[in-house]
Design a protein around this nucleic acid. Structure first.
Length: 498
RNA sequence: GCCCCCAUAGUCUAGUGGCCAAGGACGCCGGAUUCUCAGUCCGGAAGCCGGGGUUCGACUCCCCGUGGGGGUACCA
């Protein structure tokens, strides 16, 4: 009989959600959903200094953005709550009493300064810096004296003195740690707050966590955790330590690598579906050559056993490519929904667009998405759809707008377009090509200046289709306006730098 | 310093002793596309870290080295 799978994602609320956290959350979620188990969200706010109160919302938003849900957590409740560690202090103290009663924990009066000093000495002598255990031997009288002298204390866990600790990790394999190499860790701080090790072990047990899936930086901690479990009589969960995500310089992805917050990628115009797909491919592969996979496909192929144990570099370029694939794949309506807030923020769309205007936006998206990788591309390269106030790129000026014959040609084209009774891409194409033929030039000689005049750029989607999405009067106005500027010599190419 | 882990092209990866004169993807380079390219299509360059074993046979197993990473906190 197999127990129901229960996993947890347990972030520290430090104010922002790291892309590595999201990766861990994702793998937990995948395993939970794959196994028909439960996903628990637990907040590990035992660091009173770094934890912030609004961080909870950031965590929820990060998870929701990428489309992960959870069955138990601070917001949805559950029968093993509370799910915020600072609200569970009484619980930890109960187990602390058990440890003290069994002589597996003791008061330590050493100050942080003393500890640091001793570590320096040990390091200088080339021996592993670990707590020397001096307070473990204190007599009741000595403790009383120290207290009377006003010394504050914390609580340490008495680790095994010899032997080894074997971790059978689903991803990392069997790893053995020497017990003699670690000192007694602090499990309750002077403040009365538990440390991560203690709270984590107690909660995983109480919340009936069956599989601990976390980043490999926690692998060494597992030695302490397993000893704590043994001392407390807890059945240890299964462990799966995920490889780290590295920055370009191959060190653990962190703030100094630039964009690491989930919100950074959201703002850069990544689609959550693409990020989901991209992230799952860091440390896991379906075993065949599929890369762009739906959530269902991923779920049906996923397994912890297939996870790789070597770290991977977060390659933004590949992430952008993946995003581009989703731009092509997803329904234009959905992309438009994701895009709208960005356009509104850039003041390129009104706050509550009419149904007609919305339809138009969907068409713009549909036309542009093939050559678009990020949502923000619409705000930059695609701004001419939304405003007359676009820049004339230097390349456009140089190649197409600074020629002598241009103003007249643009005006001729404007005249023709003015006569069109129907404004659709076929009629526009006929008019444009017609002018080219009558002027005895190739169609390109009209198309390119026209694109440059109307969009300010040399590249973009099919000219006739993009013009169709502009208002007829507006398009004509742009042609005449550009002609005027060109005549006034205001569209001369800037000298090239370098 | 000490402990642990990792090692297929610049990057993500397939590979679990013969199917591999190593497959896919991103990126890069080249060509095509007379409506541009940031799109699309086609093509190309680029890799098993080194050395020892084990074996009839190693990218795959073992050892050593090297390189990289993580840990070594009253942070998680």
């Amino acid at each position: 009989m197999t127990e129901d799978v229960r996993v947890r994602f347990a972030p520290a609320p430090t104010g922002y959600m790291h892309i590595g956290n999201l990766h861990t959350a994702l793998f937990n979620w995948l395993f939970a959903r794959k196994m028909g188990g439960a996903m628990i969200l637990r907040i590990e706010d035992t660091d009173e200094l770094r934890s912030t109160s609004d961080a909870l919302e950031v965590i929820y938003q990060g998870l929701k953005w990428i489309g992960l849900d959870w069955d138990e957590g601070p917001d949805v409740g559950g029968e093993y709550g509370p799910y915020v560690q600072s609200e569970r202090l009484d619980i930890y103290h109960e187990y602390l009493d058990q440890l003290i009663g069994g002589e597996r924990a003791y008061e330590c009066f050493c100050t942080p300064e003393e500890l640091e000093e001793r570590r320096q000495v040990m390091r200088a002598r080339g021996i592993p810096p670990k707590y020397d255990g001096r307070c473990a031997a204190l007599s009741d009288d000595e403790r009383e004296e120290l207290r009377a002298a006003g010394r504050k204390s914390c609580i340490r866990f008495r680790v095994e003195e010899g032997g080894t600790t074997l971790i059978r990790d689903i991803i990392q394999g069997e790893v053995t740690y020497d017990n003699a190499l670690i000192g007694d860790p602090v499990i309750v701080k002077t403040s009365g707050f538990p440390t991560y090790h203690f709270a984590c072990v107690v909660d995983d047990h109480l919340m009936r966590i069956t599989h601990v899936i976390r980043a490999v930086e926690h692998l060494p901690n597992t030695q302490i955790h397993m000893q704590l479990q043994a001392a407390l009589g807890f059945e240890p969960p299964a462990y799966a330590h995920l490889p780290l995500i590295l920055g370009e310089d191959r060190t653990k992805l962190s703030k100094r690598h630039g964009a690491v917050a989930v919100t950074d990628y959201e703002q850069q115009g990544f689609l959550p579906e693409a990020m989901f797909n991209f992230l799952v491919l860091l440390g896991w592969s379906p075993g065949d050559e599929r890369e762009v996979m739906s959530r269902e496909e991923i779920l049906s192929s996923f397994s912890l056993e297939a996870c790789d144990s070597s770290p991977s570099v977060f390659d933004v370029q590949k992430a952008e490519w993946m995003n581009g694939e989703y731009m092509k794949l997803m329904a234009p309506e959905v992309i438009a929904e994701r895009l709208l807030p960005l356009l509104q923020e850039a003041r390129l769309m009104e706050d509550s667009p009419s149904a007609e205007r919305w339809e138009w936006l969907v068409q713009v998206v549909d036309l542009m998405r093939e050559r678009t990788r990020l949502l923000t591309t619409f705000v930059s390269w695609g701004q001419y759809f939304f405003t007359d106030d676009y820049e004339y790129e230097n390349r456009a000026r140089k190649k197409w707008l600074s020629r002598e014959e241009i103003p007249e040609r643009l005006e001729l084209l404007a005249d023709r377009l003015q006569l069109l009774a129907t404004w659709d891409h076929q009629s526009i194409e006929t008019a444009v090509r017609g002018l080219a033929e009558e002027s005895g030039v190739s169609a390109a000689k009209v198309i390119h200046p026209c694109r440059a005049a109307i969009t300010g750029t040399t590249i973009g989607p099919s000219l006739f289709h993009l013009m169709e999405l502009l208002d007829q009067e507006d398009a004509i106005g742009r042609l005449r306006g550009t002609a005027e500027l060109a005549r006034a010599g205001k569209l001369a190419a800037e000298p090239e730098d370098e």
